[in-house]
Design a protein around this nucleic acid. Sequence first.
DNA 1: TGCTCACATTGATATTGTTCGATATGAGGT
DNA 2: ACCTCATATCGAACAATATCAATGTGAGCA
Lengths: 111, 111
Amino acid sequence: MEKYLDNAKVFKALGEPKRIMIIDMLSCGELCACMILKKFEMSQSTLSHHMKLLCECGLVNSSEKGKWTYYSVNTDTLNKTKQFLDDITNEKENCICKEDNSCCKGSNENE
Amino acid sequence: MEKYLDNAKVFKALGEPKRIMIIDMLSCGELCACMILKKFEMSQSTLSHHMKLLCECGLVNSSEKGKWTYYSVNTDTLNKTKQFLDDITNEKENCICKEDNSCCKGSNENE
DNA sequence: TGCTCACATTGATATTGTTCGATATGAGGT
DNA sequence: ACCTCATATCGAACAATATCAATGTGAGCA
C-alpha cells in the first residue's frame, strides 16, 4: 500500500538523530539553514542533504526569501504521521490473528 | 542526548514498509513468526533479521514457547515514542529562535 | 558587470542496510 | 539417540545512505 511507503519515508527521515534534532529545533517556528548549521558540527553540504530528505518526505517545508532559505515543520504531514502510528497500533477488524493458525499449534494449545 | 538516539532507532525500524506492516499485524496481539512469514514474499532469514531489529529497538517483545517464537508489540516503547514525537514537535522555552540570528538578517527584515 | 554570500548539486568514498542461501541451534516427537 | 521443524546466525552480494570537498546557481550589493 502507498500509505505504508509514504509513512516509511517519514520514519526513515526521523531515523537519524541529527534529523530529529533539526525537527526539534524547528518546532518553535521557521529557521534559516545558517542557524541550523551553527548548531552542528557538519559541513554545509551535509546539512543541505539532510534538509532535502526532510523536505522530500513532506515533514519540512522550505521557503526562499532572498539569499536565505527558511525551513519549518509541515504540521499536516506531522499530524498524519501521528495518526498513522495510532492506526497501525490499534486493533483491527480483519485481523490476521483470526485466520488459520494451524502452523503454530501443538503441545502448547492448552494454556 | 541518549533519548534522540534511542528514538532514532525506533524510527529507523519503522522506516521500512515491511516492518511497518509487521507492527500493523501485531496490533491485535501476539503472533508466531510462521504466521508473519506466510504474509510476505520473504525468506525466513530475512524475516528473522527484521524481527531482530524490531526487538532490539524495543518496539517488539518476543517470547519463546516450545518450538515457536511469539512476537508482540511493546506498548510501553510505543507510547514513549508517541510521547517523544509530541515532545519534539511542541514549542519549547529555550528555543533556538530566540537566540542571535544576525547571520540571516538583512533586506527582508521588515516583513 | 563583477563580487560575495547562502544554499544546492555533484562526485567520490566509507559505512550501513537488505536480502538470500547455507548452516547452526534447540525443542519435541518417535 | 535420532529426526524434524521453527527460528537464529553467518557470510556474501548488492543497494542505499552519509559525508565531505569541490563546484554550480542565483540573489543582492557595489
